[in-house]
Design a protein around this nucleic acid. Structure first.
Lengths: 223, 223
DNA sequence: GGCCGATGTATCGAGACGATACATCGACGT
DNA sequence: ACGTCGATGTATCGTCTCGATACATCGGCC
């Protein structure tokens, strides 16, 4: 996930690690940020993988193992995406598998880079997310009506609030899907050129149990 | 956090690890669960610390380092809270520091065990959570109005939805606090006996910037 | 008899986190 | 001129968490 986000940001312009973190927090809606303990190791990994480069020619590349902990002289490092990195990003941005929407955090990142995502991919991700959240909602509903009597007020209240949140997310997704379908003026018609190899696309996941009967209100709300 | 939750559950009755996990998921509102990769190490730690005991007398206690990876014969293990564990739980349940409400997950667990929490502690935690979420809300609001022009529709939509969620949480907390103050029939008047040593209570955290002017609507909504 | 899904215990590697250290810079007061 | 304070900036450490996986037992059900 971090890899995707970093590539997405560097896709637009080179940046320092510090600013990367700020932009990320901004884009993610202010709550959920990312810590340096994740960011720098990720940058290091990606650098090793050739997805990004630094201007500084590798600090502490080879120094005697007994050297002091590298104090003093810590220069600023600008990270730049490579051609390989861009390729990797375009590969990732066309993925629509469960990992794109099952985890809320990852879904948020995907959404934040929707302007760089093809229209059909956008739709598949939104609908995937809808399925996931819908399933959560039904589970929660069942659990709530099952245990309404046996739990104390606080636990019940917690579940009720959780259910409402999930409910609201479903409705929000419906609106996004709606405005995606009525095509409220967004470019990027179909998946552009790309078509890079067989990137394991969305296995239909055994078609789900699409029998819940809770499927009428869709695509008919608002706008 | 896991430690608190486990102690809280075992406080009521002994359990298998498996059931511990299920109950935890139940209590946490169905979403956010806990994985075995967290649960079993936690149980092991707590067992070593003497907070809980098992009926099986320590599997793989001392066996030659070359032994096969302990295949076959894996008995069920019932975990029971010890006197020390109960003591520890009562200590934890009276804490009202930032860790009780800054992290949403931890707060959820605390709330789930409110029936075992003294009334004044409940109130402090709810108000702490309110402060935290309120601060998030203001940050989000500021960020949204600052960047309304510069961001694309999707990022904006993400932030708007996030803001609404936070907004609803604040209102939800207000209701909880309200009904806590009007004392809608809950026992546990004051912090009971306990008073176990100097448990680092809530440092007022330099009183916050309580100047936002956004402080009128409290305690006057609904009911 | 054979298979499946629930129950159940447990480990592994990848990686995320909070805390912390250290460094530079501009602004501000004194 | 001096101090110091907050923002910018790079980086690591130990602790924890996660998802995936392996293995085992049990009750039904065809």
């Amino acid at each position: 996930m971090l890899e995707f986000a970093i590539l997405g940001l560097l896709h637009q312009s080179p940046m320092h690690g510090y600013e990367l973190r700020k932009q990320l927090a901004q884009v993610l809606g202010g709550l959920r940020s990312i810590s340096y303990g994740s960011l720098y190791p990720a940058l290091k990994r990606m650098r090793a993988a050739g997805l990004i480069t630094t201007d500084e020619p590798d600090p502490h590349a080879l120094l005697p193992a007994d050297a002091p902990p590298l104090t003093g002289r810590r220069g600023k490092v600008v990270y730049t995406i490579t051609a390989e990195g861009k390729e990797r990003f375009h590969e990732l941005v066309s993925q629509t598998g469960p990992e794109a929407y099952d985890d809320g955090g990852f879904f948020g990142v995907r959404l934040a880079f929707f302007r760089l995502t093809a229209a059909d991919v956008r739709l598949r991700i939104l609908e995937g997310r809808r399925r996931t959240v819908e399933r959560q909602r039904e589970g929660l509903r069942a659990s709530l009506s099952r245990t309404r009597e046996r739990l104390d007020r606080y636990t019940l209240e917690l579940q009720r609030h959780g259910l409402e949140s999930v409910d609201r997310e479903v409705r929000w997704l419906d609106e996004l899907i709606d405005s995606e379908l009525t095509g409220s003026g967004h470019g990027d018609a179909q998946t552009p050129p790309d078509q890079t190899g067989p990137h394991d696309q969305d296995p239909p996941r055994s078609e789900e149990k699409e029998s819940h009967g809770v499927r009428q209100g869709r695509h008919r709300r608002r706008r």
